[in-house]
Protein backbone atom coordinates (compact mmCIF):
# COMPACT_ATOMS: atom_id res chain seq x y z
CA UNK A 1 0.00 0.00 0.00
CA UNK A 2 2.87 2.34 0.83
CA UNK A 3 6.31 1.87 -0.63
CA UNK A 4 8.88 4.52 0.24
CA UNK A 5 12.06 4.35 -1.69
CA UNK A 6 15.11 6.28 -0.51
CA UNK A 7 13.22 9.36 0.58
CA UNK A 8 15.40 12.37 1.28
CA UNK A 9 14.20 15.78 2.36
CA UNK A 10 16.37 18.83 2.81
CA UNK A 11 15.24 21.97 4.61
CA UNK A 12 17.89 24.37 3.39
CA UNK A 13 21.16 22.78 4.40
CA UNK A 14 19.51 20.58 7.01
CA UNK A 15 18.80 17.05 5.84
CA UNK A 16 15.63 16.01 7.66
CA UNK A 17 15.29 12.62 6.00
CA UNK A 18 18.15 10.42 4.89
CA UNK A 19 17.39 7.64 2.43
CA UNK A 20 14.31 6.47 4.24
CA UNK A 21 12.80 3.31 2.77
CA UNK A 22 10.01 1.24 4.23
CA UNK A 23 6.87 -0.53 3.18
CA UNK A 24 3.40 -0.95 4.54
CA UNK A 25 1.33 -3.84 3.22
CA UNK A 26 -2.40 -3.73 2.65
CA UNK A 27 -4.44 -4.29 5.80
CA UNK A 28 -1.61 -3.59 8.22
CA UNK A 29 -1.72 -1.14 11.08
CA UNK A 30 1.75 0.28 11.34
CA UNK A 31 3.04 2.49 14.11
CA UNK A 32 5.45 5.13 12.89
CA UNK A 33 7.73 5.82 15.79
CA UNK A 34 10.44 8.23 16.63
CA UNK A 35 11.46 10.87 19.11
CA UNK A 36 10.39 14.46 18.50
CA UNK A 37 12.28 15.91 15.56
CA UNK A 38 13.08 12.51 14.06
CA UNK A 39 11.32 13.35 10.80
CA UNK A 40 7.97 11.65 11.42
CA UNK A 41 5.81 14.55 10.35
CA UNK A 42 8.07 15.29 7.42
CA UNK A 43 7.71 11.72 6.20
CA UNK A 44 3.94 11.73 6.61
CA UNK A 45 3.71 15.07 4.85
CA UNK A 46 5.64 13.65 1.94
CA UNK A 47 3.41 10.58 1.83
CA UNK A 48 0.30 12.73 1.91
CA UNK A 49 1.59 14.90 -0.93
CA UNK A 50 1.89 18.08 1.11
CA UNK A 51 5.66 18.15 0.73
CA UNK A 52 7.75 16.82 -2.10
CA UNK A 53 10.83 14.71 -1.39
CA UNK A 54 14.20 16.23 -2.33
CA UNK A 55 14.98 12.85 -3.84
CA UNK A 56 13.45 9.40 -3.78
CA UNK A 57 9.82 8.51 -4.26
CA UNK A 58 6.86 7.06 -2.45
CA UNK A 59 4.18 4.95 -4.08
CA UNK A 60 0.67 4.80 -2.72
CA UNK A 61 -1.03 1.71 -4.06
CA UNK A 62 1.43 1.79 -6.94
CA UNK A 63 0.92 5.46 -7.78
CA UNK A 64 3.86 7.79 -7.34
CA UNK A 65 3.10 10.71 -5.06
CA UNK A 66 5.61 12.75 -7.09
CA UNK A 67 4.36 11.99 -10.60
CA UNK A 68 0.67 11.28 -10.04
CA UNK A 69 -0.14 13.29 -6.92
CA UNK A 70 -3.87 13.60 -7.58
CA UNK A 71 -4.47 9.85 -7.98
CA UNK A 72 -2.22 9.04 -5.04
CA UNK A 73 -3.84 11.65 -2.79
CA UNK A 74 -7.31 10.36 -3.57
CA UNK A 75 -6.38 7.06 -1.91
CA UNK A 76 -5.28 8.66 1.33
CA UNK A 77 -7.20 9.95 4.28
CA UNK A 78 -4.67 12.19 5.97
CA UNK A 79 -5.00 13.76 9.35
CA UNK A 80 -2.32 16.41 9.91
CA UNK A 81 -0.77 16.90 13.31
CA UNK A 82 -3.08 18.96 15.57
CA UNK A 83 -5.86 18.65 12.96
CA UNK A 84 -6.06 22.23 11.70
CA UNK A 85 -9.65 23.19 10.81
CA UNK A 86 -11.64 26.19 9.63
CA UNK A 87 -12.94 27.55 12.91
CA UNK A 88 -15.71 29.57 11.26
CA UNK A 89 -17.44 26.48 9.84
CA UNK A 90 -19.87 24.09 11.45
CA UNK A 91 -18.89 20.46 11.85
CA UNK A 92 -21.43 19.09 9.36
CA UNK A 93 -20.74 21.90 6.91
CA UNK A 94 -17.01 21.28 7.08
CA UNK A 95 -17.33 17.54 6.54
CA UNK A 96 -19.67 18.08 3.58
CA UNK A 97 -17.16 20.47 2.09
CA UNK A 98 -14.33 18.01 2.59
CA UNK A 99 -16.40 15.21 1.08
CA UNK A 100 -17.08 17.32 -2.00
CA UNK A 101 -13.44 18.38 -2.21
CA UNK A 102 -12.38 14.75 -2.12
CA UNK A 103 -14.75 13.88 -4.90
CA UNK A 104 -17.46 11.98 -3.02
CA UNK A 105 -20.45 11.84 -5.37
CA UNK A 106 -23.24 14.28 -4.54
CA UNK A 107 -25.77 11.52 -3.95
CA UNK A 108 -23.69 9.74 -1.29
CA UNK A 109 -22.17 12.81 0.38
CA UNK A 110 -24.78 13.18 3.12
CA UNK A 111 -24.63 9.46 3.94
CA UNK A 112 -20.85 9.58 4.04
CA UNK A 113 -20.90 12.53 6.43
CA UNK A 114 -23.42 10.96 8.81
CA UNK A 115 -21.42 7.73 8.73
CA UNK A 116 -18.17 9.43 9.76
CA UNK A 117 -19.95 11.58 12.33
CA UNK A 118 -21.08 8.36 13.97
CA UNK A 119 -17.70 6.65 13.50
CA UNK A 120 -15.72 9.49 15.03
CA UNK A 121 -18.09 9.88 17.96
CA UNK A 122 -19.42 13.27 16.90
CA UNK A 123 -23.11 12.48 17.22
CA UNK A 124 -25.19 15.58 17.75
CA UNK A 125 -22.26 17.88 17.02
CA UNK A 126 -22.86 18.57 13.35
CA UNK A 127 -24.36 22.01 13.97
CA UNK A 128 -21.60 23.16 16.31
CA UNK A 129 -19.05 25.75 15.19
CA UNK A 130 -15.62 24.16 15.00
CA UNK A 131 -14.23 27.20 16.83
CA UNK A 132 -16.29 26.21 19.86
CA UNK A 133 -15.02 22.62 20.00
CA UNK A 134 -12.49 21.36 22.51
CA UNK A 135 -9.20 19.96 21.33
CA UNK A 136 -10.44 16.39 21.63
CA UNK A 137 -13.46 17.06 19.50
CA UNK A 138 -11.41 18.90 16.90
CA UNK A 139 -9.20 15.87 16.72
CA UNK A 140 -12.30 13.77 16.05
CA UNK A 141 -13.40 16.13 13.31
CA UNK A 142 -9.95 15.72 11.76
CA UNK A 143 -10.35 11.98 11.97
CA UNK A 144 -13.85 12.15 10.47
CA UNK A 145 -12.39 14.22 7.65
CA UNK A 146 -9.74 11.59 6.99
CA UNK A 147 -12.47 8.93 6.81
CA UNK A 148 -15.09 10.77 4.82
CA UNK A 149 -14.09 9.61 1.35
CA UNK A 150 -13.57 5.99 2.56
CA UNK A 151 -9.93 5.93 1.44
CA UNK A 152 -8.11 2.60 1.51
CA UNK A 153 -5.19 4.17 3.38
CA UNK A 154 -5.28 6.30 6.52
CA UNK A 155 -2.28 8.36 7.53
CA UNK A 156 -2.70 9.82 11.01
CA UNK A 157 -0.11 12.17 12.45
CA UNK A 158 -0.16 11.89 16.25
CA UNK A 159 -3.92 11.39 16.56
CA UNK A 160 -3.80 11.19 20.35
CA UNK A 161 -1.48 14.10 21.06
CA UNK A 162 -2.96 16.46 23.62
CA UNK A 163 -5.96 14.29 24.48
CA UNK A 164 -7.00 13.20 27.94
CA UNK A 165 -6.75 9.51 28.87
CA UNK A 166 -10.42 8.78 28.11
CA UNK A 167 -10.19 10.38 24.71
CA UNK A 168 -6.97 8.52 24.00
CA UNK A 169 -8.74 5.27 24.79
CA UNK A 170 -11.59 6.19 22.47
CA UNK A 171 -9.27 7.09 19.62
CA UNK A 172 -7.43 3.80 20.07
CA UNK A 173 -10.70 1.91 20.08
CA UNK A 174 -11.73 3.70 16.92
CA UNK A 175 -8.46 2.87 15.20
CA UNK A 176 -8.89 -0.76 16.17
CA UNK A 177 -12.35 -0.71 14.59
CA UNK A 178 -10.98 0.90 11.45
CA UNK A 179 -8.40 -1.85 11.03
CA UNK A 180 -10.91 -4.00 9.22
CA UNK A 181 -11.47 -1.61 6.34
CA UNK A 182 -8.30 0.44 6.11
CA UNK A 183 -4.57 0.19 6.02
CA UNK A 184 -3.33 2.56 8.70
CA UNK A 185 -0.05 4.35 9.26
CA UNK A 186 -0.12 6.17 12.57
CA UNK A 187 2.70 8.24 13.99
CA UNK A 188 3.36 8.68 17.65
CA UNK A 189 6.12 9.07 20.14
CA UNK A 190 4.20 7.13 22.76
CA UNK A 191 5.15 3.48 22.65
CA UNK A 192 2.30 2.04 24.64
CA UNK A 193 0.14 3.43 21.86
CA UNK A 194 1.88 1.25 19.33
CA UNK A 195 1.63 -1.78 21.57
CA UNK A 196 -2.09 -1.12 21.98
CA UNK A 197 -2.99 -0.53 18.35
CA UNK A 198 -0.43 -1.72 15.86
CA UNK A 199 0.74 -4.93 14.22
CA UNK A 200 4.06 -3.53 13.14
CA UNK A 201 6.36 -0.68 13.87
CA UNK A 202 8.70 1.50 11.86
CA UNK A 203 11.20 3.28 14.04
CA UNK A 204 13.12 6.32 12.86
CA UNK A 205 15.53 8.76 14.48
CA UNK A 206 17.40 11.71 13.04
CA UNK A 207 15.77 11.11 9.68
CA UNK A 208 17.03 7.55 9.36
CA UNK A 209 15.34 4.21 9.60
CA UNK A 210 16.41 2.52 12.83
CA UNK A 211 14.31 -0.59 12.82
CA UNK A 212 11.14 -2.03 11.37
CA UNK A 213 9.24 -5.21 11.93
CA UNK A 214 6.46 -6.75 13.95
CA UNK A 215 6.23 -5.67 17.56
CA UNK A 216 7.73 -8.98 18.70
CA UNK A 217 10.64 -8.50 16.32
CA UNK A 218 11.19 -5.01 17.61
CA UNK A 219 11.12 -6.13 21.22
CA UNK A 220 13.58 -8.90 20.41
CA UNK A 221 16.04 -6.30 19.20
CA UNK A 222 16.82 -5.59 22.76
CA UNK A 223 17.48 -8.36 25.21
CA UNK A 224 16.41 -7.68 28.76
CA UNK A 225 18.98 -6.06 30.93
CA UNK A 226 17.26 -6.86 34.15
CA UNK A 227 14.42 -8.78 35.65
CA UNK A 228 11.88 -7.36 38.07
CA UNK A 229 10.60 -9.63 40.78
CA UNK A 230 7.78 -9.19 43.26
CA UNK A 231 8.22 -11.24 46.38
CA UNK A 232 6.47 -12.22 49.58
CA UNK A 233 8.97 -11.97 52.38
CA UNK A 234 11.87 -9.90 53.60
CA UNK A 235 13.45 -7.90 50.82
CA UNK A 236 16.81 -7.50 52.58
CA UNK A 237 17.03 -11.26 53.06
CA UNK A 238 16.18 -11.74 49.41
CA UNK A 239 18.88 -9.31 48.41
CA UNK A 240 21.40 -11.18 50.50
CA UNK A 241 20.37 -14.47 48.92
CA UNK A 242 21.02 -13.11 45.46
CA UNK A 243 24.57 -11.93 46.06
CA UNK A 244 26.41 -14.77 44.43
CA UNK A 245 24.15 -16.00 41.66
CA UNK A 246 25.91 -16.73 38.40
CA UNK A 247 24.97 -14.19 35.72
CA UNK A 248 23.21 -11.83 38.09
CA UNK A 249 24.56 -8.39 38.76
CA UNK A 250 23.37 -5.93 41.30
CA UNK A 251 20.08 -6.29 43.16
CA UNK A 252 18.16 -3.16 44.06
CA UNK A 253 15.10 -2.93 46.26
CA UNK A 254 12.59 -0.70 44.55
CA UNK A 255 11.18 2.10 46.55
CA UNK A 256 7.68 1.07 47.45
CA UNK A 257 5.69 1.01 50.69
CA UNK A 258 5.79 -2.77 51.20
CA UNK A 259 9.32 -3.23 49.85
CA UNK A 260 8.12 -6.14 47.78
CA UNK A 261 9.79 -5.38 44.47
CA UNK A 262 13.34 -6.21 43.47
CA UNK A 263 15.19 -5.46 40.33
CA UNK A 264 18.10 -7.72 39.44
CA UNK A 265 20.38 -6.75 36.60
CA UNK A 266 22.03 -9.28 34.30
CA UNK A 267 25.76 -9.27 33.97
CA UNK A 268 25.41 -11.27 30.76
CA UNK A 269 22.18 -10.45 28.92
CA UNK A 270 22.66 -13.37 26.51
CA UNK A 271 22.17 -15.73 29.43
CA UNK A 272 19.06 -13.99 30.73
CA UNK A 273 16.71 -16.97 30.79
CA UNK A 274 19.04 -19.27 32.71
CA UNK A 275 19.93 -16.50 35.12
CA UNK A 276 16.27 -15.77 35.79
CA UNK A 277 15.69 -19.43 36.60
CA UNK A 278 18.66 -19.44 39.00
CA UNK A 279 17.39 -16.29 40.71
CA UNK A 280 13.97 -17.79 41.32
CA UNK A 281 15.51 -21.01 42.58
CA UNK A 282 17.75 -19.11 44.99
CA UNK A 283 14.81 -17.19 46.39
CA UNK A 284 12.73 -20.30 46.99
CA UNK A 285 15.69 -21.92 48.77
CA UNK A 286 15.52 -19.17 51.42
CA UNK A 287 11.72 -19.54 51.69
CA UNK A 288 10.88 -16.32 49.90
CA UNK A 289 7.79 -16.55 47.74
CA UNK A 290 8.04 -15.29 44.17
CA UNK A 291 4.80 -13.65 43.10
CA UNK A 292 5.73 -12.07 39.78
CA UNK A 293 8.69 -12.16 37.39
CA UNK A 294 8.85 -9.57 34.62
CA UNK A 295 11.79 -9.23 32.27
CA UNK A 296 12.20 -5.51 31.77
CA UNK A 297 12.34 -5.32 28.04
CA UNK A 298 9.57 -2.97 27.19
CA UNK A 299 9.28 -1.29 23.84
CA UNK A 300 10.17 1.86 25.72
CA UNK A 301 13.65 0.54 26.35
CA UNK A 302 14.04 -0.72 22.82
CA UNK A 303 13.12 2.76 21.71
CA UNK A 304 15.48 4.50 24.09
CA UNK A 305 18.29 2.14 23.19
CA UNK A 306 17.87 2.20 19.46
CA UNK A 307 17.26 5.89 19.00
CA UNK A 308 20.22 6.80 21.15
CA UNK A 309 22.80 5.11 18.98
CA UNK A 310 23.71 4.81 15.36
CA UNK A 311 21.37 2.91 13.03
CA UNK A 312 21.78 -0.83 12.76
CA UNK A 313 20.21 -3.53 10.65
CA UNK A 314 16.44 -3.75 10.90
CA UNK A 315 14.62 -6.65 12.42
CA UNK A 316 12.93 -7.31 9.11
CA UNK A 317 16.25 -7.28 7.27
CA UNK A 318 17.83 -9.58 9.80
CA UNK A 319 15.00 -12.03 9.33
CA UNK A 320 15.26 -11.87 5.57
CA UNK A 321 18.98 -12.47 5.68
CA UNK A 322 18.45 -15.43 7.95
CA UNK A 323 15.89 -16.78 5.50
CA UNK A 324 18.33 -16.49 2.62
CA UNK A 325 20.96 -18.45 4.39
Amino acid sequence: MIACHKLCKDYGSFRALKNLSFEVARGEVVGFLGPNGAGKSTTLRILSGFLGPTSGDARINGHSIVDEPIVAKSMIGYMPEAAPLYTEMRVGEYLLYRAELKGVARASRKTAVSRVIADAGLDGMDGVLIGHLSKGYRQRVGLADALVASPPLLILDEPTAGLDPNQIREVRALISRLKEKHTILVSTHILSEVEAMCDKGVLIARGELIAQGTLAELRALRRPRAVRIRIRGDASAAKKALVDIQGAGETTIEDSADRSRLSVSFSDPDDADATTARIVAALSRVQIGVVEVVPSSSLEQVFADLTARAPTATAGDAKKRKGQR
Binding site: K73, Y86, T87
Partner: peptide, 14 residues
Amino acid sequence: KSGTIEALLTAPVT
Protein backbone atom coordinates in the same frame (compact mmCIF):
# COMPACT_ATOMS: atom_id res chain seq x y z
CA LYS B 1 -0.84 30.67 9.56
CA SER B 2 -3.53 28.36 10.95
CA GLY B 3 -2.18 25.27 9.19
CA THR B 4 -5.41 24.47 7.32
CA ILE B 5 -3.44 24.76 4.10
CA GLU B 6 -2.11 21.28 4.86
CA ALA B 7 -5.60 19.76 4.85
CA LEU B 8 -6.45 21.69 1.70
CA LEU B 9 -3.38 20.72 -0.31
CA THR B 10 -3.46 17.06 0.72
CA ALA B 11 -6.94 16.73 -0.78
CA PRO B 12 -6.89 15.49 -4.37
CA VAL B 13 -7.00 18.95 -5.95
CA THR B 14 -4.61 20.75 -8.26
